[in-house]
Design a protein around this nucleic acid. Sequence first.
DNA 1: GAATCAATACCCCGTTCGGGGTATTCTGAA
DNA 2: TTCAGAATACCCCGAACGGGGTATTGATTC
Lengths: 224, 224
Amino acid sequence: MTIKLAIVEDTPALRKHIEELFTFFKDIRLVASYASGEAAIEGIRRLPPSKIPDVILMDIMLPNISGIETTITIKEMFPQIEIIMITVFEDEQKIFQSIQAGASGYLLKDDAPEKIVDAVRELVKGGAPMSRTVAKKMLDYTRGKMDSPLHDPTEKYSSVNFALSIRERELLNGLVQGGTYATLSKQHCISPLTVKTHIKNIYKKLHVHSRANAVRIALEKNLV
Amino acid sequence: MTIKLAIVEDTPALRKHIEELFTFFKDIRLVASYASGEAAIEGIRRLPPSKIPDVILMDIMLPNISGIETTITIKEMFPQIEIIMITVFEDEQKIFQSIQAGASGYLLKDDAPEKIVDAVRELVKGGAPMSRTVAKKMLDYTRGKMDSPLHDPTEKYSSVNFALSIRERELLNGLVQGGTYATLSKQHCISPLTVKTHIKNIYKKLHVHSRANAVRIALEKNLV
DNA sequence: GAATCAATACCCCGTTCGGGGTATTCTGAA
DNA sequence: TTCAGAATACCCCGAACGGGGTATTGATTC
C-alpha cells in the first residue's frame, strides 16, 4: 500500500526540496503540498477521500496559525491522519505541545533527508519517529527527571484558559454528564435553543466540533 | 573513541550470539560479559578504570536479582555508565520501571541484531534508542493518553473490565478522538453501519447511551 | 451615552445519531 | 460437529445534533 503524504511548509525552497525528495519512492506518494495552516485545513477538507493523506509533514512556524494549531484542527477533522512535526524547534515546550496536539512524530530540520523518509515509514508501521534529542527528552520526561512544561501547575491553568463563562462551564459539565439539549434545558430552566447557543459558543472556544471532543478536552484539561 | 561494551544476559546461546555480534566492529569493543546481575555488579566493581564499560546491554529476566534491580545498583555505583535494556518484555510496567531505574534505552529481543549495534551507537551520540513499540508507548505517555503504570493502583484495571473486544476498543478510541460513523468507517475500512453496530455494542457494555458518556467512561477508566 | 460581554432566544436545514431489530460468516474451543 | 463470540452488514425511523445566522436585554466599564 502506498503511503499518501502531504506537506505543510511555508518556506518555498524547503517545500520544494521535500517535494522532490519524495519523487524517488514507490511506497510514498505526495498527494498535496500547502504553504500555510489554513491552506492545509481547507485543502484537505476538499480532497476526495481517495486523496486524503495518511501522513502529513507539518512545519510549526507557519504564517498566521501555527503548525501546532493546524495539527489540532486536522486531527479533529481527520483523526486517522498521522502528523509528523518537522521543525527547527527542539525546546521542550514545542515538543510537548505538538505531541499534545496529536503529533505522532517529531523531527528536526537539520535531520538528514533520508531520516524524513524513514520517519514516514516508521510511523505507518506503528512507531513514533523522533530525532535523537527528542527521544532523549521524552525518556527524561518518562524517568521523571524532567517535568513536561505543559504539566507545570502554574502554566497548566494559564495555558488552557479557554475563557469559559460561568454558564458555559455549567453546561460543559452537563455535556460531560451526558446531558442533551432537552435535559439541560429543563435542568437550568432555559430554552433548549439557548442551551444549544451556549454549546456552540463552548465549541468555538474549545476549538472542537463535537460532544465527544468537548468532553475529552474538558476531562483532559480539568475544565470541569 | 571505542565504545566499551558489557553484556548481562543469562541465556548462554544469546549471550554468545551477542558477544560474536560485536566482534565485527571497530568502534565497539566488548570488555565484559556476565550471566547474572550479581556477577555484573561484582565484576564491574572489580574492573580497572580503563575497562569500565561505557554501555551495558542488560537483560531484565535474570536469575535472582532482576536486570532492573541490577540497573539501579550499577547506576548508583557508576552513574556514567549507560544502560540499554534488551528483553522480551514490552509491557508498560517493565518499560517504565526500567527507565525509572536509569536505563537510557530499551530494545526488544526480537529486534534485528543490527538494531542492537545501532542502538549502542545512538546512545553514545546522546540519543535514547527504543524499539518502535516502546517509542510509541513513550509518546502516548507524554501525550497524557496513558498514565505510567507505576502511578496507577492495580485495582483500577481489575475493577473495570467491560469485556470490550479488540475492535470495540479501537472504535471506542475513535469515539474519544471525535470520530463519526463516516470517518471511523473510512479509517477502519468497514461500513458505517458496521461501525454503528459496534458502537451500539460498546454502549451496551459500558451502560451508556451517548458518545459523551462513552468518552467520559473511557477516559475516567483508562479504557483507551 | 457608547461599547462590550454574557445570557437568553430563535430560524433554517442538512447531517448524524441512537435504538429497535435482523442476518451471515468466520474462528476457536469444547 | 456444534456452539458461542466477534466481525461484518443492513433496515426503519424518530430524535438529536451542528452550524450558518439573527436578535434583544441587562450589567459593567469607560
